[in-house]
Amino acid sequence: MDTEHSPHHKTVAILSRGDATARRDATPQNSRFIRVFEALSAVGIEARPVVYDEAFADAVRNELLAVDGVLVWVDPIHQGKTRSALDPLLREIAAQGPWVSADPDIILKMGVKEVLYRTRHLGWGGDTHRYDSADAFRIEFPSRLRAGGPRVIKQNRGNGGQGVWKVEALPDTDTEVRVLHALRGSRPEEMPLDSFIARCESYFGWGGCIIDQAFQPRLPEGMIRCYMSGSKVAGFGHQLIKALMPPPAEGPDAPEAQPGSRMMHGPDASLFQTLRRSMEDKWTPQLMETLDIDEASLPVIWDADFLYGPRDSAGADTHVLCEINASSCFAIPDEAPAAIARTVKDRILQNQRAGSG
């Protein structure tokens, strides 16, 4: 029997961005997703690497139409390129039959900074505001900054710290601020507040809005990354981060701050079981209800990044959501590839049953 056309033979494309050389040389064995390829194979799914760039989008389209599902690992911004051409292509693919994760429209609901504002009423929320225009930002932000202490400004779509700024008013002035970009290697700058506001105006283009959160003083204690496959926790990562922290020394000879290594943990790690229960039992269902997302549409792999918030009256930790990653969630814990494979298998079967119905 020709297994390629067997109804029991399932194929998945693992889509990532790269140039023509990367496309030519791509194999499961030399891919950074090799453990995902192996896990998919273990559940009977053939996975194929597909490398995307706008220059050969038509060839990619033909490859994606030939598989049962597409797993997408493409950042919102990469070396100046956005997903403005890729997202319509993925919508086109999904409309013609193959199942796609994460769906671009789901990313626009949960994988953007606006989700911090839309879900601020959940237990992970906090002092969060949204500016829908440059005029609103210019009018509302200065008084909020003066009244509430340091703020964190975030462009709606981005990755790697791009468009994320800590902003604090300088003492004895209403017009000067100190800002620090979360992009690696950035150093504090002092400038007029009007100049910083003007610098951020471009964020209202592709992203559409700016999100403003209170700075969390417990940032030096690190960030907890809760990895999810669908609605279930697939693991955790804990990292001491340098972003939005001042460098240890000033001057041109100061060493560049580097992020700390992320310690990975499985879903059963005892240290994070309170957070796991909150994510699985409360926050993810509430997220789905708030954003009108059904469980079958949740990304196969996504993560929610938390900072430590103020301790509660009993002295227990609280957690404040600072980002959800749904476009390109990687690296992942050792336990996550198997969770991805199980979810992929279930989703492809669901998609095919829906298509035959």
Rank of each mutant, 00 (worst) to 15 (best):
V164M: 04
A22M: 09
Q213R: 13
V70M: 05
L244M: 11
A94H: 13
Q96P: 12
L108K: 06
I301E: 02
L240N: 08
F33L: 05
R342M: 07
W165H: 08
T284E: 08
R35P: 09
A254T: 14
L275A: 11
P98Y: 00
A304Y: 05
L287I: 03
T284Q: 12
G148R: 10
E140R: 13
H319P: 01
S186W: 02
P188R: 05
F306G: 02
K282V: 09
D212S: 14
N159M: 05
R218K: 12
P299G: 04
V100R: 00
H319V: 05
A269I: 06
P247N: 07
A57F: 07
I210Q: 09
G355K: 15
L240I: 14
P171G: 10
F330I: 04
R157W: 02
L291M: 14
S6D: 13
R157A: 07
E168M: 11
I211T: 12
G355V: 11
G235K: 05
D2L: 10
D346R: 15
I139L: 13
S313M: 11
S133M: 09
P142W: 01
T119E: 02
P76Y: 00
D312G: 04
P28M: 04
A316N: 15
S133T: 14
R151D: 09
K113I: 03
A314S: 14
Q350T: 15
R138H: 13
R120K: 15
L219G: 00
E114A: 08
Y203C: 04
I107P: 00
W206H: 05
A182G: 05
A182K: 03
E335T: 09
Q162A: 04
W206N: 00
R184C: 06
R32Q: 13
I93A: 04
F215C: 11
D53K: 03
D305V: 10
Q162F: 00
L275N: 08
M288P: 09
A338E: 12
Q96S: 13
T27L: 07
A85R: 08
S229Q: 03
T119N: 04
V100Q: 01
I348G: 14
L298Q: 06
G309N: 05
H121K: 03
G148K: 12
F330G: 08
K154E: 03
S143N: 14
A13W: 07
L108T: 09
L122E: 14
A269Y: 02
V167P: 07
S297M: 10
P76N: 00
R218I: 03
K282W: 06
K113E: 14
E189W: 06
E289L: 13
R61P: 05
K242S: 12
D105Y: 02
F236Q: 06
I340E: 01
S133R: 13
E46F: 05
F306H: 07
M263L: 12
E114K: 14
E140N: 11
D68E: 15
Y52C: 02
D194A: 15
Q216I: 10
C209L: 03
D135R: 15
P98L: 01
G230A: 04
R91K: 12
A39T: 13
G355P: 02
